[in-house]
């Protein structure tokens, strides 16, 4: 399988593809990806209509630089894949993944459709969402089933809470074990973990920007990089929360500079004070973390530039039309 560039997924909006005004307005929201839903937000009687809207919706959601994602139905996987695997689609989200054979079947179908439809082999990612207890218990086999899985997570949310028989919004992390299993599986198999640390949420609000920022910021500090939501209000806070701040960038430069000085001394670590006078230890772990932070910040800036340029191009074209 050829190497494919890692795509950023700090922010994303999930919307029913049948709601035209959502699809038509999503491109300028500034999200890294747009998730066109065929699953839970689409009524059963509109499933056929919905899947046939994906091909024409891909360029619509793509035009502001967001990557196009489609969430298909677990029980309609083959019919949905046939309708959604088209050039411009980055990823198929597969809900309630429970067994490796489901993923292998998806991989076969996508491989055939890529060949038939002029898509570079291996382009389309599979997002295998863990939303049931059975899925958690088979996590390792699921991720191992296809190299198209480049991110992996779940084990929380409404479906999971229902399967476990628990209320969704409580004061403690009822999903801590499942999330841990899924994260360890992702890291052990070298794919990006998709998870969030627990932050109490008793309101269940999907549009609170402060909450979205706090969640994204906490997730980034725990080593997570992937966001997503349901309301335009949360896009900017998620982009911001997942992007290292200027202070963090300055600090990372300082750590790397301190570490470079170590190389002249023969020591492997040093204890010093940072710009704010706090005692700090600098060693190769801290230096590696600082390097990663700078790379991530550069990738975020590049992604933001890409999207801003795409949005500006569309606006200019619209103005001249």
């Amino acid at each position: 399988m050829p190497d494919h560039p890692r795509r950023l997924k700090r922010s994303g909006l999930t919307m029913p593809v049948v709601t035209e005004r959502f699809i038509n307005n999503a491109w300028h929201r500034g999200c890294d990806f747009i998730n066109m839903d065929l699953e839970d937000s689409v009524p059963p009687n509109l499933k056929d209509v919905a899947r046939n809207l994906i091909k024409e919706s891909i360029p619509v959601v793509n035009k502001g630089g967001a990557d196009a994602v489609c969430r298909i139905n677990h029980d309609l996987m083959e019919a949905d894949l046939n309708a959604v695997v088209w050039p411009g689609l980055m990823m198929v989200n597969y809900p309630k993944a429970e067994h490796a054979h489901e993923i292998r079947r998806m991989d076969e179908i996508i491989t055939r459709l890529e060949a038939e439809r002029g898509i570079r082999p291996g382009t389309i990612e599979i997002g295998a969402n863990i939303e049931t207890e059975v899925g958690v218990t088979n996590a390792y086999d699921i991720v191992s089933a296809s190299p198209r899985i480049r991110e992996f997570g779940g084990a929380s949310g409404y479906d999971m809470s229902r399967d476990l028989g628990v209320e969704m919004f409580v004061q403690f992390d009822q999903f801590v074990y499942g999330k841990g299993e899924v994260e360890l599986t992702a890291r052990a198999l070298g794919v990006t973990p998709h998870a969030t640390p627990f932050t109490p949420n008793l309101t269940g609000s999907v549009s609170d920007p402060d909450r979205a920022f706090a969640e994204a910021d906490a997730a980034r500090r725990c080593g997570f990089r992937i966001g997503g939501g349901l309301h335009p209000n949360v896009v900017e806070p998620q982009n911001r929360g997942f992007t290292p701040t200027d202070d963090e960038v300055a600090d990372a430069h300082w750590v790397i500079q301190q570490y470079r000085q170590l190389s002249h001394t023969g020591d492997t670590w040093l204890q010093t004070q940072d710009a704010s006078g706090q005692p700090r230890v600098v060693d190769r772990y801290e230096a590696a973390r600082a390097e990663e932070l700078l790379q991530w910040r550069a990738a975020c800036e590049e992604r933001d530039r890409e999207k801003n340029e795409a949005i500006a191009r569309v606006r200019a074209a619209e103005a001249s039309a």
Partner: peptide
């Protein structure tokens, strides 16, 4: 961990 494992494995 033990409690989480119990709930997940049993429910599954």
């Amino acid at each position: 961990y033990a409690r989480g494992r119990l709930c997940i494995e049993a429910t599954a």
